[in-house]
Design a protein around this nucleic acid. Structure first.
Length: 609
RNA sequence: CGGGGCGUGGCGCAGUUUGGUAGCGCGGGUGCUUUGGGAGCACUAGGUCGCAGGUUCGAAUCCUGUCGCCCCGACCA
């Protein structure tokens, strides 16, 4: 391919819209253009990258026995109503683009395909003899993100590989999950990406076990907590750790009331009276809105030195509310304005204790009139503690759960693990924080969707039962940008060979020099002849411009046909290391071929997986 | 959704406070020179200043509305 025919438009200045290196470089390098917020055109160079990633994904998926398919992006609301996700995905901060057609039917653009695939499975899979089956597709997905950003990292339209597996029993699902885990590791390694697999929350998709694959990068949006030995790694949403032991509270055995004017935070309270935060119980009041029924006030008790993990809370609340409530749409702190507009008297905010009574909710206009109470074990395990007295500017010192009116609430793990915490499985190690870009996520869904959509099969005993399901995603377009984030320098992109748009670029230093031009053409053809993907920079530009562009677009190997051309010498440059050497024309094809064929294996080539 | 900011040639920006003939750099075209790390000179094309109203003799600039985009936040009651 000739650069002069490539519609290559590179930018000298950084586009104003880009914040992180990968986003800037993809725009500057002429790989993509923004069409709307979170919506990008993939230009020819980027499409080659995406196609290469897709090809690797296909090979590895096919190798697991999965079947490629293509499902509709446009999906009827009725299907999503059957799984119970239509509300959650369209109301509140729902992320599904949805529309009404000319017949007044509601439709959505697929952010994921559990509903469609499960309905098909219900239709097609009837017997255990057909199982297991895995299907996958590589397709454009749509998500109306609250805040699209970082180019392809969080777009509203993006390319995703999603796979779904169907099994006769849970053990077989676990096997497929393990195979996918292995296939994912091979895919990322072959793409030349350093990744870490982390325990994850399964979020809106639902299901039990789930694991994310993170490309390690400083600018990643996800926080990973891991043990130094690498045996434990989890997304912050999911991470567990051992809390520091609480400092015991000295007590006279009696509950003492303490005047605490103006001391509304744990920090103020402790500073004023010499308490340790771990001696206190703090109370958070939130409102949970669900798809069905009235909003439910939630009262959370946490040890004062601990932080709430909102994901864990949302999961605990969902479980506690049960299926009748439908999807949890939102859970937010209750404000004084909300209390007022419910027609309730003011609450002693800042002096709340865990024994706050349901009487406060009597007469609420729209809320349910009892608290959903939850306590983190760190709070529940305190024998004696300091907490609010439920009267303004008053706290209790020496309180016990048994003395408080409401007793001990149900326990749930609600605390956020922090960097520096002792590791759950090995207290001698402490969690370290790092950042990552989520490029893959695998789930054991179980029977959630098959039950909702009545996707059953007949087992060996002749009885019908719901299919066991797994689902497995890879953000293909995000992966492309994550690769840039992990592989670039101040000059531009340094693509791993396996996903580079071209493997080698032949730069003719002077397009005026007929010897150089002829040799450049000859080398281009010879390199293609041995099966390499070759770009020939034949533009009538100064050499410097062509070198800058070659560095920017990040072709892994560069052959410079220049001064030495007449004496049979060219220069060979490796993009990632910058190393250069003179090479006789007669040898250069073989040398380049040897390097590239080795590098096509990705990280396996360097043993660095 | 809350807060902040920005919309001026293809890209990056100045000009807006204090209203008075729309500018700079890069990029594009032509010519000459140059030719191994984003060249030099000359000429040239290209913008009803996001859009719609309004104020004014006169609006990129002031006012109102609207659309688009970017950044921060949306657990610590």
């Amino acid at each position: 391919m000739r650069v002069s025919r490539l519609m290559l438009v590179t930018l000298r200045d950084d586009p104003a819209e880009a914040e992180i290196p990968s986003h800037r470089l993809l725009l500057r390098g002429g790989y993509m253009r923004r069409v709307a917020s979170g919506v990008y055109a993939y230009l020819p160079l980027l499409w080659r990258v995406l196609s290469k990633i897709s090809a690797i994904v296909r090979q590895e998926m096919n190798a697991t026995g999965a079947l490629e398919t293509l499902l509709p992006a446009l999906q009827p609301a009725s299907l999503w109503e059957r799984s119970g996700r239509w509300q959650g995905y369209t109301a509140g901060e729902g992320i599904m683009f949805h529309l009404v057609d000319r017949q007044e039917r509601s439709l959505g653009l697929g952010p994921t395909h559990e509903e469609v695939i499960t309905a098909l499975a219900a239709d097609l899979l009837r017997s255990y003899r057909q199982l297991p089956v895995s299907l996958y597709q590589i397709q454009t997905k749509f998500r109306d993100e609250i805040r699209p950003r970082f180019g392809l990292m969080r777009g509203r339209e993006f390319i995703m590989k999603d796979a779904y597996s169907f099994h006769a029993d849970e053990a077989d699902l676990r096997l497929a999950y393990q195979r996918m885990d292995q296939a994912y590791r091979r895919i990322f390694s072959r793409c030349g990406l350093r990744t870490v697999a982390v325990e994850a929350d399964s979020g809106a998709i639902g299901g039990s076990a789930s694991q994310e694959f993170m490309v390690t990068a400083e600018t990643g949006e996800d926080l990973i907590l891991s043990s130094p030995d690498g045996r434990y790694a989890a997304n912050q949403e999911r991470a567990r750790s051992l809390p520091e032991p609480a400092v015991p509270l000295k007590s006279t055995g009696e509950v003492v009331e303490l005047q605490t004017p103006g001391q509304h935070s744990i920090e103020d309270l402790c500073a004023a009276h010499g308490f340790e935060p771990s001696q206190t119980v703090k109370v958070l009041i939130l409102l949970a809105r669900s798809a069905e029924g009235q909003p439910r006030p939630v009262l959370v008790s946490l040890r004062g030195d601990q932080q709430l993990n909102p994901t864990k809370l949302a999961n605990a609340v969902t479980t506690a509310l049960g299926e009748a409530a439908g999807a949890l749409l939102e859970i937010e702190p209750i404000t004084p304005e909300q209390i007022r507009s419910e027609g309730l008297p003011p609450w002693p905010l800042g002096s709340l204790g865990p024994h706050l009574g349901d009487a406060l909710l009597a007469g609420a206009r729209s809320w349910q009139t009892s608290f959903l109470r939850l306590a983190d074990p760190t709070a529940a395990e305190l024998e004696i503690f300091v907490c609010g007295a439920n009267r303004p500017d008053t706290h209790l010192v020496g309180a016990r759960w048994s003395d408080l009116g409401e007793g001990l609430p149900p326990m749930a793990d609600l605390r956020a693990a922090q960097p520096g915490d002792r590791c759950f499985q090995d207290p001698s190690q402490r969690l370290e924080a790092s950042r990552g870009i989520e490029v893959g996520h695998i789930f054991q869904l179980g029977r959630k969707y098959s039950q909702a959509l009545e996707a059953t099969f007949t087992n060996e005993q002749g009885q019908d039962e719901p299919l066991w399901m797994g689902c497995y995603g890879i953000g293909v377009s995000r992966l492309a940008q994550a690769a840039v984030e992990q592989h670039h320098d101040e000059l531009g992109i340094c693509w791993p060979v396996a996903i580079a748009p071209f493997e080698v670029i032949v730069v003719v230093a002077s397009a005026q020099d007929s010897v150089q031009v002829a040799l450049g053409e000859q080398l281009h053809d010879a390199l293609e002849q041995v099966g390499l993907e070759v770009l020939l920079d034949d533009r009538n530009e100064r050499a410097g411009v062509k070198f800058k562009d070659a560095d920017l677009i990040g072709i892994p190997w560069r052959v410079v046909v220049g001064r030495g051309a007449s004496s049979g010498l060219v220069e060979l440059v490796e993009r990632s290391s910058g190393s250069k050497r003179e090479c006789p024309v007669t040898e250069v094809v073989a040398v380049v071929q040897q390097h590239i064929e080795a590098d096509r294996l990705g990280l396996a080539a360097t043993g660095n997986s």
